[in-house]
């Protein structure tokens, strides 16, 4: 348990670096490999900006909470057989709680500077992210059904015969909508969008902004690991050792999420809300119903 925690803590910074590299491929935002480090160093050296009458405590803590939620979410992912940082029997529910609290933290990040653009970003984001989170819960229940358990370890073990992505093909794409939402990217980037001059981060600079970007990438790592575990069999795979398979699958999901964020356009919030409630949420119900029929003895 302690070993797994240490491995996660050591593996996270390089994975965050890789996530930042994925974000820069073909985006024209500086060099791919060294760019993240250069930008990060430049941000750390810059001073923080002040706003009028902010909520100092929450402004200071929001990036840290975001990172902490990514770490807690990551901790339920088993790295290999019997190697998992938090051995909790309700790992999927814990992951769900991290999703829900992420929405809260992003709202706090936008609300605390007491400035218009961040508040607008935070407000739009909450309206969109809550239904996105809702549908992810149905999808995750679908992943838990064949395992007959809420423990992530059992969910992986239940995929020895066949991966969930084949048994329930709708699951992974729907879950990726959540991934885009909680990592604030692409079609779900209502919080930090460029049209709001950075949205919830519009008033941020310096180390706080660097930590926010770091946490955002860490959340992408956590989401990718979770998606790889719940739908792609996690550490299961031939020849290579378990952790290597988990790493490969995580990187694949990460690349797919970044690509999806680039490929899909962002709709106006009202249309996105309708799309989520009228199309995606019923799709997740249908997916869950199909899984239910499938696992009937």
């Amino acid at each position: 348990m302690i070993a797994a925690t240490l491995i996660l803590l050591l593996a996270l910074p390089p994975l965050v670096w890789v996530a930042a590299m994925f974000d820069r491929i073909g985006a024209g935002r500086g060099t791919v490999v060294m760019g993240p480090l250069q930008n990060g160093a430049a941000l750390v050296l810059r001073p923080n900006t002040e706003t009028e009458a902010p909520d100092r405590l929450n402004r200071l803590l929001a990036p840290g909470w975001y990172l902490a939620l990514a770490l807690v979410g990551l901790s339920v992912v088993p790295l290999a057989e019997d190697v998992v940082a938090s051995e909790i029997s309700t790992g999927l529910v814990l992951w769900g709680a991290c999703e829900a609290l992420t929405v809260v933290v992003v709202f706090l990040h936008g609300w605390s500077p007491n400035a218009p653009l961040p508040l607008i970003g935070a407000y739009r984001y909450v309206a969109i992210a809550l239904p996105a989170m809702l549908l992810s819960m149905f999808v995750l229940i679908g992943a838990a059904l064949p395992a007959q358990s809420l423990s992530v370890v059992e969910v992986v073990e239940a995929q020895r015969e066949i991966w969930n992505v084949i048994r329930q093909p709708l699951g992974l794409p729907l879950f990726m909508a959540l991934g885009l939402a909680i990592t604030l990217r692409g079609p779900f980037d209502y919080a930090d969008g460029a049209e709001l001059a950075g949205g919830t981060s519009a008033e941020e600079s310096g180390p706080a902004l660097a930590l926010w970007h770091f946490a955002r990438a860490a959340m992408l790592v956590a989401f990718s690991a979770m998606a790889a575990t719940a739908f792609l069999g996690g550490y299961l795979g031939p020849v290579l050792p378990g952790p290597a398979w988990l790493l490969l699958k995580t990187l694949a999901v990460m690349a797919a999420t970044v690509a999806a964020g680039r490929f899909f356009v962002r709709m106006p919030p009202a249309r996105m809300l309708t799309f989520l409630w009228v199309v995606l949420l019923p799709l997740s119900f249908a997916s869950l119903a199909l899984v239910g029929v499938e696992v009937l003895p």
Partner: peptide
């Protein structure tokens, strides 16, 4: 944990 999950959403609303 379900309490935490539920209440995070509820208080956000």
């Amino acid at each position: 944990i379900a309490t935490i999950f539920m209440m995070a959403v509820e208080m956000m609303v």
